[in-house]
Nucleic acid binder design. Structure first.
Length: 505
RNA sequence: GCGCCGUUAGCUCAAUUGGCAGAGCAGCUGGCUCUUAACCAGCGGGUUCGGGGUUCGAGUCCCUGACGGCGCACCA
């Protein structure tokens, strides 16, 4: 359990350090100092100063006065000269407060009033210390926001993964990697958007509240709309709405938005997650594969500057993986056969598959059909063992209800899964556009639903009506943005997502 | 859901066989005009996750509950 500190209403019960900070706050107010002023006349940022003065000689002065702000993260007080390290949104910089320029009273006040964690504003001259550290030499300073809680230990920071997630604000203050992750995610998302819009794709937003949940196999969250007094679902996928747009004549379309799935949360699953889905009229799963590889290459380039994906473990050890070039494309029957040492084809009977699963230690549900068994074998024998990005193709049709049948073998579906580092990053289909066939497949799914399969899709009559107006041949792709970040950085979903779901305290 | 590990000061972590609950950072007091994880001296700070039990004595052993991490299962 993360310690939240006791009820702040009773001063006497506060931990010593919080009580002292409260008392300082009261004393400052009594002295007429506003510990939370409206603002400060900042003239530059800390990183801008580093860029403007890249190689000042030690002990140099510039005569240039600046106004800077920042949070005090380290302090080194002397008798007549104090140093502190400030951190603003751009970076860190040292300030120095000599008694000559700030005056005796204000230097004393700095030592007694300012705590690590406080926001301060400094006016002073850009200088370089005798030891060669770019600094601002203060002539005056002011508290811009008083911090009432002590920050974590200055070297190790927050190590408890739960505390990092629950108090992400503290994590961001003290841990550079947390700020880097936020930046990398923003960069990757911007890159994906840019990759698609420059190729003529248009971004849309489709409903998150849906009367019928479809487009994937997953348990939904349910909610209730008072106005209609009816049950609604948080979407598990935007797929069926994006396909309606293809019917409507929007030929290249994508959405980057949240999906919700009422399933377990672990190091690679969050109940709400961000999904890219894109559709291209007259594309197919091959064109989507090429496009996906380009989009990810461009995202990696944006994030890392090259196509070397860097995974850093907790010890700071960095491992690089080259993801350049064309990624392997492996039909799953071939891949499973290779892993198994047996010849698996679309003709292999389910009983034979069960025998192989037994010897491969893969647990099966007795109710599963042939397609589900193949899928299970794929997940155990291929997906979990795959490191380098790989496209696995041609899944069984019966477990791909929205995918068109393979042009050479109707028992297979024109679908691929992109796998990297043991987990699925995305999937794509040559979309099923035949409304009669689609109705038959969805009906079969609904029958599974009434048979107790809670994840089976419901029958979306309006979607079928849309298909009956004729949807052009199309390729469609879905990719988890959180998963993309995991692939690019090697971190868990609880680090790529700023505020993953945690149990309320 | 199952298994393993964990929860000790604001933070990061110790505590031998069951024997006075400690250190570093942070805090407080004092010193220091070039420090930079500043340094030096002194001081304060604990519901050892909650509940129950065994024992002369429990952070430590037993039972139980909560929360978390990892693995398995399910999923993207």
């Amino acid at each position: 359990m993360v310690n939240q500190g006791p009820d702040v209403s009773d001063l006497d019960d506060l931990p010593e350090q919080m009580r002292i900070r409260r008392e300082k706050l009261d004393r400052l107010r009594a002295e007429g100092v506003d510990p939370y002023p409206v603002g400060f006349a900042r003239t530059t940022t800390l990183n801008q100063l580093r860029e403007d003065f890249p190689d000042l000689e030690p002990d140099a002065s510039t005569g240039i006065e600046v106004g800077i702000v920042g949070r005090v993260i380290l302090r080194r007080d002397g008798g007549k000269l104090c140093f502190a390290t400030l951190r603003d949104g751009s970076g860190d910089l040292q300030v120095m407060l000599p008694i000559d320029t700030v005056g005796e009273d204000r230097l004393k006040a700095w030592k007694t009033d300012v705590d690590i964690g406080d926001h301060v504003g400094i006016i002073g001259e850009v200088v370089c210390s005798r030891r060669g550290e770019l600094s601002v030499k203060a002539s005056s300073w002011v508290i811009t926001s008083k911090c009432l809680r002590p920050l974590p230990e200055k070297f190790k920071g927050l190590t408890d993964p739960e505390a990092r997630v629950r108090q992400r604000y503290v994590d961001l203050i003290v841990r550079p990697e947390a700020r880097e992750m936020l930046q990398m995610r923003a960069t990757a998302v911007a890159s994906v958007r840019n990759s698609l819009t420059t190729r003529g794709f248009v971004e849309v937003e489709t409903p998150m509240l849906q009367a019928i949940h479809g487009g994937a196999n997953a348990r939904p969250f349910t909610t209730h709309i008072n106005a209609y007094d009816m049950e609604l679902f948080l979407r598990i996928a935007p797929e069926l709405y994006l396909k309606r747009l293809l019917v409507g004549g929007i030929e290249k379309v994508f959405e980057i938005n949240r999906n919700f799935r009422n399933e377990g949360a672990d190091s690679s699953h969050n109940p709400e997650f961000t999904m890219l889905e894109m559709y291209q009229a007259y594309g197919d799963y091959n064109s989507m594969r090429e496009l996906t590889q380009q989009v990810i290459h461009e995202a990696a380039l944006a994030v890392h500057g090259d196509l070397l994906v860097r995974h850093r473990d907790d010890d700071g050890q960095v491992t690089e993986y080259d993801i350049s070039g064309d990624w392997p494309v492996i039909p799953i029957n071939r891949g499973i056969s290779a892993a198994l040492g047996e010849e698996l084809t679309a003709d292999t009977e389910a009983d034979q598959l069960r025998t192989w699963c037994d010897s491969a230690d893969i647990t099966l549900d007795p109710g599963w059909g042939r397609g589900q068994i193949v899928l299970e074998m794929y997940e155990h024998l291929l997906e979990s063992r795959t490191t380098a990005p790989t496209f696995y193709t041609d899944f069984p049709t019966e477990v791909s209800p929205l995918t068109r049948q393979h042009r050479e073998d109707p028992r297979l579906a024109e679908r691929w899964d992109l796998v990297a580092f043991g987990s699925e990053v995305g999937t794509a289909y040559s979309e099923l556009i035949d409304p009669v066939e689609q109705r038959a497949r969805l009906t079969a799914q609904s029958l599974l639903a009434t048979g107790g399969d809670v994840e089976a899709m419901a029958l979306d009559e309006d979607f079928l009506r849309a298909l009956e107006f004729a949807m052009p041949p199309a390729g469609g792709q879905g990719m988890g943005i959180d998963r993309l970040l995991m692939m690019l950085t090697g971190r868990s979903i609880r680090e790529t997502v700023l505020f993953p779901l945690v149990r309320p305290e």
